[in-house]
Each structure stands twice: as C-alpha cells, then as structure tokens.
Computed example of a mutant assay.
Amino acid sequence: MPRVVEQIQRAELWHRNTFLATATAAGTGWTYARHPTEIKRPADGRAPFVKEITCPTCGDRLRFRVHSVASTRRRQRLFRALAWTSLGLIVAGVGGVVAMWTTDSFNGVLLFLGLTAIVVGLGAGPSLGSMAADDMGITGHGASNPGAVKHPLQVTEPERPGD
C-alpha cells in the first residue's frame, strides 16, 4: 500500500470478474476490472463520512467510510504503538522465563504469565504492524481486507516527477 495519505486521495475501485480463481503460470488468482477514482477526505478534525461509489462494471452502490488525513495518521500511529508494545511483551516474557530458568526460582504463575506474554506478543504484533502499514483511512467493502473480495478499493501512489 502507498505511504502517502492525501487530502484528495487517488484510488482504484476494483471489480472481481470471476467467482472462482483461475490458474495461471504465476499461480492462482482472480481477474479484476479497475476503475480509477478520486476521494476527497474530510477536513482535519471533522468526523469521517460515508462516500458512495457506484461500480461501473456491475452497478452496485458501495459505501466506504473515509477518514481525514490527521485521523488516518493518528490511527496508523496507534496501530504502530500497539505493535511495538507487543514486541515489548515478547521481550518481557522471554526475559522473565529466562531469568526464572537461570536462577532456579521456578514459579508456575510467573511462568504462565511469561509464556502468555510471548504468545500474545507473537500473535498481536505482526497483525497490528500490518494494520499500521495498510491503514489508509478508507474502510468498507474489503478496502482493508487481505482476501479476494468483490469490490476492493486500492489507494494508489501519486505520480512522482521523473516516473
């Protein structure tokens, strides 16, 4: 996903053309029709609004929740902070278990808490880090879903000079 969050965000509405995945030389996948669009975000400090887009391929009316630039960056920072906190849980859990093991001071409750911290950190950290990287402040109809949805909205990078 692009890293640039803009007031007027360029995007592509994709329409999945096939119900079943098709086999290709590169693997299995779906084919999509792509329709470029622009989405104007609310001003910073304003509440998110619902943007309705009609799919040119099938005529479905799709509703996406659009957040402001500042709100999107705040959400990204929150997910990033939670991902780093998960890493801290892993370090604390491993440190506690190693300290208990090396000092021969076994405590069942502390061992349980240490192992729980490791498992929670390993489970939550990558998910939260991915959410921080992928959150572009536009949600709905699979915009943030990693699966093959019928109408994903893909935020695109702005053109750069020299490209």
Rank of each mutant, 00 (worst) to 15 (best):
F19N: 11
T37F: 08
E12H: 03
D135G: 10
T28L: 10
G125I: 03
C55Q: 00
I39P: 05
E6P: 03
T102S: 13
R61L: 14
F19D: 15
A117Y: 06
R160P: 04
V149A: 10
R74L: 05
D44L: 02
T37W: 09
M136W: 06
Q7N: 08
P48N: 00
L62S: 04
V66K: 01
G29C: 08
D60G: 01
D104V: 02
T54I: 14
N107Q: 07
P36S: 07
P2L: 00
D135K: 06
T139F: 13
W84K: 04
H141A: 07
S144A: 13
G140Y: 02
F112I: 00
I8L: 11
V50A: 08
Q7E: 11
V5D: 08
I138S: 05
Q9K: 06
P56M: 04
M131N: 12
H141F: 12
R77Q: 10
I118D: 00
S127A: 14
G140W: 01
W14A: 14
G123Q: 04
F112C: 05
H35Y: 10
T139L: 14
D44Y: 00
A81T: 12
A21K: 05
P146S: 02
T116C: 09
F64V: 09
A70P: 11
G129Q: 13
N145K: 06
L115R: 01
D60T: 08
P126M: 03
G123K: 00
L62M: 08
A124C: 13
G96T: 04
A99N: 12
T116E: 09
S130K: 15
H15Q: 10
P158E: 07
F19G: 14
V4M: 07
V94W: 04
Q76T: 02
V91T: 05
T102F: 09
I90E: 08
D134N: 13
G142N: 05
Q7F: 15
R65G: 02
K150F: 13
R41K: 01
D134S: 11
L113R: 13
L153K: 01
W84G: 02
G147A: 09
A47S: 10
A132G: 15
V98T: 11
H151P: 00
H35R: 03
H151G: 00
V109T: 14
T156C: 08
T31W: 04
L82M: 13
A81I: 06
Y32G: 03
A124K: 06
D104Y: 08
E159I: 11
G95R: 00
G29W: 02
Q154K: 14
F112V: 09
R63M: 11
P161Y: 08
K150Y: 10
V149T: 15
H15V: 03
A81C: 00
D44E: 11
V120S: 01
R41E: 01
A143L: 03
V98I: 15
D135V: 09
G121Y: 05
P158C: 02
T103S: 10
L111P: 00
P146V: 02
